[in-house]
Simulated scan of single mutants.
Amino acid sequence: MRILHVLNTVVHTGNGIANVAVDLAVEQRRRGHEVAVASAGGGFVDLLRENSVLHHHLDFTSRRPKALITAHRGLATLVDRTRPEVVHAHTITPTVVGAVVQRRRPFTLVATVHNEYQRGVTLMRTADAVVGVSEAVSASMVRRGVPRARIHTVLNGTVGSPRRTAPSPEDVVHLPPDAIVTVGAVSHRKGADVLVAAFEEVVREFPGAQLYFVGNVDWTELAEGVAAGERADQVHFVGFDAQPQRYFPTATVFVLASRRDPMPLVLLEALEAGLPVVASDVDGIPEALDGGRAGLLARPEDPTDLAAKTISLLRSEDLRRRLGAAAKERVATLTVAAMTERYLEVYGITSS
């Protein structure tokens, strides 16, 4: 099968959309399909080429009329030259441009909704098939008017990702006891303020606890406020790390306090490492945690509940061990191979 993935960028900066698209493209190529990616480029271009996935430079990052006309011409030319059977769009603008190009060209257009909370996401209904990365996302798209018959759910998978290698012993970050780790942008959506507030309650029972934010600091006011406060020596904003798994081997608990999160890859990676998890009961997170069997679910935007769940894990080594085992069992089904197989099924169903 000839497959063309289209998205904004393939940056190597913790972008979940790029991560999924790259994993999928490489795995499809390994299975013998002809696969290409079109984007404005980024750090994963070399990885794609190393795995015999062609990368074509097309810029979908602007929605200005002139930029859209240029993107349309570029995609139309690329489709005419490469004749893909499936064009798989991962963001809004490539979906809309792809739908216009498709009017005069015979290919199947599939659109994956990675972030259904984004403004304009309803435009992705123009695809022949709309894929939600969790049942929560798929249900949201139904509420937005997309016919259920055109919606499919494909859970993200991270096990077996070609992007990642296990950290070497010398690369592992050695954390102190009672270390709480979260990975992702320090932002309002990721609930950074909720986690900071919850940590205040945690340290009342565990005075030596340490909190590590591993990710880009988008909310500088929050970080600056913490740095100026009494927890400055206990809350660490370490910034983006291309290999955040370095923090997992010696972490005590992984916490994700998101307000919105369709199916966060970092959560799956924490499960893969066998970390006991506390995460918000929102969007696709309960699906990732198997309804709470593979990790503790906390009420969203509730620092007290988040703190209570985190404290319960810090208190009990037995609970941490049991949840760690359940985490590995759960994530064993969330592989890149399983994700790829499911997408190939969607392509086949939609094309027929």
Rank of each mutant, 00 (worst) to 15 (best):
G43L: 07
E205M: 10
S351E: 13
G225K: 06
E272K: 00
L296P: 13
L344I: 01
A298S: 08
V277S: 09
R105Q: 05
R81P: 11
V53M: 15
F44Q: 10
T310R: 12
R246G: 01
G145S: 11
D80A: 13
L109N: 03
H57I: 03
A332R: 02
G324Q: 02
H236N: 02
A185D: 06
S187P: 14
A251G: 14
A227H: 11
T93I: 03
F213T: 02
T95I: 07
R330K: 00
V26Q: 00
A294C: 03
A197F: 05
R259L: 10
Q245I: 03
T304F: 01
L68F: 01
T108R: 15
E170S: 02
G229Y: 10
L75R: 14
P169D: 04
P65D: 03
V101L: 08
V131H: 13
T304E: 15
R342W: 05
V255I: 08
V172F: 15
R49L: 09
A185S: 14
T108C: 02
R204N: 06
R320F: 14
P176T: 08
A332C: 03
V226K: 00
E317H: 08
S134Y: 00
Q234W: 12
A99D: 14
L267H: 00
A273L: 00
D302Q: 03
T304P: 03
A136W: 04
H188N: 12
V130K: 07
Q118M: 08
T95D: 05
P169L: 02
E135T: 05
A327H: 00
L296E: 00
P264F: 08
L267R: 04
A288K: 11
Q28E: 03
V282P: 04
R64N: 12
E301C: 07
V203N: 06
P147I: 07
P300Y: 07
D261R: 01
